[in-house]
Nucleic acid binder design. Sequence first.
DNA 1: ATCCTACACTAGACAATGTCTAAGTCAAGT
DNA 2: ACTTGACTTAGACATTGTCTAGTGTAGGAT
Lengths: 138, 138
Amino acid sequence: MSDLLERLRGRGWRMTAQRRVVAEVLNGEHVHLTADEVHARAVVRLPEISRATVYNTLGELVSLGEVLEVATDKRAKRYDPNAHQPHHHLVCARCGAIKDVHPGGNPLADLPDSERFGFTVSDVEVTYRGVCPNCAAA
Amino acid sequence: MSDLLERLRGRGWRMTAQRRVVAEVLNGEHVHLTADEVHARAVVRLPEISRATVYNTLGELVSLGEVLEVATDKRAKRYDPNAHQPHHHLVCARCGAIKDVHPGGNPLADLPDSERFGFTVSDVEVTYRGVCPNCAAA
DNA sequence: ATCCTACACTAGACAATGTCTAAGTCAAGT
DNA sequence: ACTTGACTTAGACATTGTCTAGTGTAGGAT
Ligand SMILES: [Mn+2]
Ligand SMILES: [Mn+2]
Ligand SMILES: [Zn+2]
Ligand SMILES: [Zn+2]
């Protein structure tokens, strides 16, 4: 992820303070932030950054394949910088906490041809739901 | 689904024209409508029905377990009346068409304890994505 | 170092989806 | 038929996402 800015430059992208800050927010440990959460954190470092730029930059990173959009939340999309290691998600139904998980097996192979209806299936998204230890204790 | 209204009455719910119409819209073949699509169809039969009532009724049906909320779309929630037969979804990335699918295997069993982080995991939602035959031909 | 300009950014309007409230309505028990 | 509390309505409001017109600037050219 640290060379994300280099990869972007390699694709002819201008390196701006705004893009750097968005990349920094997504950097670090594995987070799953909404666009407005990214904006809130970006504003700390660059107070004048606009919502539109955050949305634009996230969209660009998704198009590049550097960030994934995930729909674990039924409200806002979440942006996942852990794009280079395939994984799925485990979500607490009470507090919304999200963990990356790596189930065994291959869900794609579990879908027989008779259940594909002629689709060309290219991707599968798995969301486990439950209650996290914190919420279970309370 | 036809005795849904009886089940509701059994729980002390008042039987109103609005609730009947929402149930009728969800009845029939397996659909995956957004709240506003449900409202649009309900208005045909009961012109004065309000958006708030559609949202309320859908929320009540979800609480009852009679209808499922699914997040196949990254925009609006979709409401799935096929709640009594476990299944997953196959979505066309181009036109949004949604098919019910029944993969082999048990995705819940594929998540080892070491990947559960102390969560009590109760449910799994699987969304396959691809391109449908119609969109592939075009 | 300065200039140029295409690309990027900002503010804010607008759109889509979802939630809430106050006031009026009515289903169903009596 | 009456009564009453649950239900519905219209519309304000909140959240999330998109778009545009005008301004600014990154980075190549000179
Ligand atoms: Mn993740
Ligand atoms: Mn379904
Ligand atoms: Zn929790
Ligand atoms: Zn299609």
